[in-house]
Simulated assay, not measured.
Amino acid sequence: MNKKDELVKKLRKLAITKQLNFLIGSGASYPAIPLMGMIQAENNEKRNTLLAETVKRVSEDLLGQALEYRASICITLNNYTNFISKIIDILNLSNSRQTPRTANLFTTNYDLFIEKASDNVLQNYRFIFNDGASGYFDRKLDGSNYNRTVSYKGLNDNYTNEIPSLTLIKPHGSMNWEKVGDSVLIRNRVIDSPVIVKPTGYEEQDTFYNNHFHEMLRVFQLELDKPQSVLFVIGFSFQDKHIAKMIKRAIQNPELMVYAFGFIDRDRETYLENLGLSAERSNFTILTPGNFHDEYKTKNTVDEGEDWYSFDLSNLTSILSGISMEDLKNGKS
């Protein structure tokens, strides 16, 4: 077995035997939502505004009753749906007596792709979707609602079986979050003035937004401090300085393994620069297309020039799709 095969096997084993965490950035919602650098504007403030308008428009389309989505939305939604389906498969395979059947999804995106994809997957899978809210008509967001487990009890009380749980934590807010008094309510529609923290803009927000931002990041930090955990980073380049600092702090925990996936090969240098690191660490690894066989990366063909390879959410899903009971053998949790 060569190094590339060993790497894929190692990633699969970590996913099924460790406490599973994902950090999902804007790259995962492409092509439905353009990356910040793709938006043409005279300054960052205007660029942030245009991005928020695009996210709102796409989110409205997702929750609408249109017979069909635009091609870019279909591609992105399909990527998220396949990804979440595979996470639930992994949690069903894991040993709940050793590792909680819970996966944490931390995302700096405020679009509604994860919510819509999870709703799609719930049609065919039994799992708990925990977005941190409680209530019925008025669903209030509260950090204390995380870290819950739910079990299915046999009709005769002769067994209990932990139900897989997907926890969604959105430190930058969401297009369906509404500020009501001192609370954030999660709605089933896109809000005209949603609770969102635009990139590089949270410093200027009022106390209400700062408190929310730090509460969500506190939950993130607590999860990364837990023993025997793994964090997979996808579509995130560590440009957010607050989260970059938290990752640097988190890797001081020797029991946490962090794998950051780069879209292109030169992202390795970009990630290290954004993190202020001179090199990778024993428990912090950057993986780019060059680390994988062709079946786990996307070939991009151009009319002129050389073909190039990329790695995105669909490629990570392909790796996770190969997990089986064999990957539990000799695994520790």
Rank of each mutant, 00 (worst) to 15 (best):
K297L: 02
A66I: 09
N210S: 12
S183R: 04
L77C: 04
S321C: 08
D61R: 08
E269H: 03
K329C: 13
I163K: 04
K3P: 01
S193E: 09
S229Q: 12
K116Q: 09
D267A: 01
Y152D: 13
S333F: 11
D119S: 13
D206Q: 02
S314E: 03
I234V: 15
V195F: 01
G290F: 04
A71L: 10
N211Y: 11
N109R: 05
N21D: 15
K13I: 03
V150H: 13
S324Q: 02
Y296M: 00
G37N: 11
L316S: 06
G25N: 15
M325W: 09
V184L: 08
L35T: 15
N130S: 06
T285L: 12
L112W: 06
F137T: 14
D307S: 09
D61L: 10
Q205M: 07
E42F: 13
G143Q: 12
W177R: 00
K241M: 13
G201D: 09
L231I: 08
Y202Q: 01
V219P: 03
A28P: 06
F213Q: 01
L168P: 08
G305I: 08
Q65P: 00
A66E: 12
G276K: 02
E60R: 14
S144F: 06
I84Q: 04
N253A: 01
M325S: 12
A28W: 04
A28F: 08
R249S: 07
L313V: 13
Y69L: 04
N95T: 11
T49A: 10
L287E: 00
A260M: 13
D303Y: 09
G135Q: 15
S237H: 03
L105Y: 11
A15W: 08
Q19Y: 14
S278V: 15
R126A: 12
V58G: 11
F263R: 10
R139N: 09
R126E: 14
E53F: 07
R57K: 15
F22L: 15
E215N: 06
L185P: 00
R249V: 07
Y125S: 14
P100R: 14
